[in-house]
Simulated scan of single mutants.
Amino acid sequence: MGNQEQDTDASTARDRLRLLMTEFTTPARTDTSPRRTTPTPQAPVDLGVLDYTMKAAREIAALTYAAVPDADPPPADAAGVYQWAYEQTAQSGIEHRIARDTTVHRQALEHAIEMGDEDVLGREPCPGCACWSLFWQADLGKAICVNRNCVDLLGRPTTWTLRQLASRYVAAKYAARRNAT
Rank of each mutant, 00 (worst) to 15 (best):
A172H: 10
A10H: 12
Q83I: 09
L140N: 09
F135A: 14
L153V: 14
L50A: 14
F135G: 06
D46E: 12
R163W: 11
A61H: 02
P125I: 03
N3R: 14
E124Q: 15
S92G: 06
D15N: 15
S167V: 02
R58C: 03
G155A: 09
V120Y: 04
R97C: 06
G128M: 05
P75S: 05
A57S: 05
A56L: 13
T25P: 00
V170D: 07
Y65Q: 06
L20W: 09
A138R: 09
Y65P: 06
T103M: 15
G141K: 05
N3C: 08
S33I: 05
P39Y: 01
V68M: 02
E124A: 03
Q88G: 09
W132H: 03
E59L: 01
R163F: 09
E95C: 04
S33G: 09
D119C: 01
W136V: 02
L20S: 13
P27N: 11
P74N: 03
G48R: 15
W132C: 04
H111W: 09
K55W: 03
H96G: 13
S133P: 00
V104K: 07
S11W: 12
M54K: 00
A90I: 08
G48C: 01
P125Q: 08
T103Q: 14
Q107S: 02
A171C: 10
V49K: 00
D7Y: 13
E124T: 00
D152H: 11
Q91W: 03
I94L: 13
A112F: 00
L47Q: 06
G122S: 13
A176V: 02
D31I: 01
E59D: 04
Y86L: 12
Q91M: 09
N149R: 08
V146C: 02
D15W: 08
Q88N: 11
A90M: 05
A61C: 00
T53K: 07
Y86R: 13
D77T: 05
R100G: 06
D77W: 07
Q4W: 06
T25A: 05
L165S: 07
E110V: 04
S11M: 14
R178S: 11
P75I: 11
L165T: 04
E87F: 10
Q137H: 14
D117Q: 02
E124H: 09
R36L: 13
P34M: 04
L17M: 15
D152P: 12
L47E: 12
N179L: 13
T12I: 11
D9L: 15
S133V: 01
N149W: 07
P75W: 07
E124Y: 00
M21N: 14
H105M: 11
R100W: 09
Y169I: 00
T30Y: 07
V45A: 03
A108P: 04
K173S: 12
T26H: 04
T103P: 02
P27E: 12
